[in-house]
Amino acid sequence: MKAFEYTIKDELGIHARPAGMLVKECKKYQSNITISKDGKTVEATKLMAVMGMAVKCRQTVKIQIDGPDEETAYQGIKAFFEGNL
């Protein structure tokens, strides 16, 4: 299992469009990917659930990746956060 933490820099937080893009990115991989904030965890492939977390700017989320392609997923998703959020 791979995991990393990331603090959101985008002023709007994980709002609708980036949430959609994140879900799209996560669906590329076979691994089971979750995103957590303040003890709440949801599957990162579910848009409304991700939006429902209402992650705001400067909040920190934890991403956990577990599965056969976790190494590539880790790289891809980390790059996505750094580039978009």
């Binding site: 609708a16 469009r17 959609g20 799209k24 492939t45 579910k46 848009l47 409304m48 659930a49």
Partner: peptide, 16 residues
């Protein structure tokens, strides 16, 4: 226009 892209993604949402 991006809102319609978001709508498309919402319609794919597994939970929904």
């Amino acid at each position: 226009a991006a809102i319609f892209e978001v709508h498309q993604m919402m319609l794919e949402d597994e939970d929904y």
